[in-house]
Design a protein around this nucleic acid. Structure first.
Length: 221
DNA sequence: GCCAACGTTGGC
DNA sequence: GCCAACGTTGGC
């Protein structure tokens, strides 16, 4: 979904990125809760603290109003600084999760809507939520006529490529673990990739993230 | 390309 | 505030 470059001076942070608890301290951009969509899910209502993320994007060409929305991990890697803004998110729950992201946190780059959906690599949040300028751009695929500059609806973050996984983790394989964990218990039982399949930006606990990451060293299930 | 699941919109 | 109609996501 999000092509567009947004260069960013990288600070150096150790790449495990963050502390486990960065909860209440988060000074949310105090925007007026005026988005009155009933679906305007639970911003920060959860006390659950997420510190890792999964973000979806389409690695294969697809044209929306004549514009190619392709943006795979290789595209991110190819940009200056291997950094991009993650624009074009137009779902409140996904947006709210982006607003909770902290600099230095890690996210899986997930390839969606393609031949082989799954997790391709890892990136790092290098700039916390700010206004997504594409919402005001009539030429942009994700232009939102209902959003006014005085009160922007949509946010984005900047992400920087970290590395590919040692092997691609296909959705089909992850699903098998999910199934297992639902019956026998295990870290993937509640992962939103399965329980909220359409959410394009979603949180992972450290335990969930680490379990998935460890799979790169395992034989495919 | 199909279509199920689900988020959003708008009439009432 | 409900809910039917509509639009989108994304796996298959």
């Amino acid at each position: 979904m999000p092509p567009k470059k947004r260069l960013r001076n990288l600070r150096t942070l150790n790449t495990n990125g963050d502390t486990e608890k960065e909860v209440s301290s988060s000074p949310k951009p105090s925007l007026k809760r005026k988005d009155s969509s009933s679906a305007m899910a639970l911003e920060g209502t959860s006390t659950e603290q997420y510190c890792r993320w999964l973000m979806k994007s389409e690695p294969e060409s697809r044209f929306e109003n004549g514009i190619d929305v392709k943006f795979g991990i290789e595209d991110l890697k190819a940009l200056p600084d291997q950094t991009s803004c993650w624009d074009g998110v137009r779902n409140y729950q996904a947006r709210n999760f982006m607003r909770q992201m902290k600099e230095g946190q890690l996210a899986f780059f997930y390839h969606s809507n393609c031949k082989e959906p799954g997790i391709a690599g890892i990136m790092k949040i290098v700039k916390e939520a700010y206004v997504d300028h594409t919402q005001f751009d009539k030429k942009d695929v994700h232009y939102d006529a209902s959003s006014k500059p005085e009160n922007p609806k949509w946010s984005m973050v900047d992400v920087q490529y970290q590395r590919m996984l040692k092997r691609f983790l296909p959705l089909a394989e992850l699903k098998k673990y999910h199934l297992q964990h639902m019956t026998k218990g295990g870290p993937l039982k509640d992962v939103m990739l399965f329980t909220r399949a359409r959410l394009s930006v979603q949180p992972l606990t450290a335990e969930e993230f680490d379990f998935v990451l460890n799979l790169e060293d395992q034989e495919p299930l």
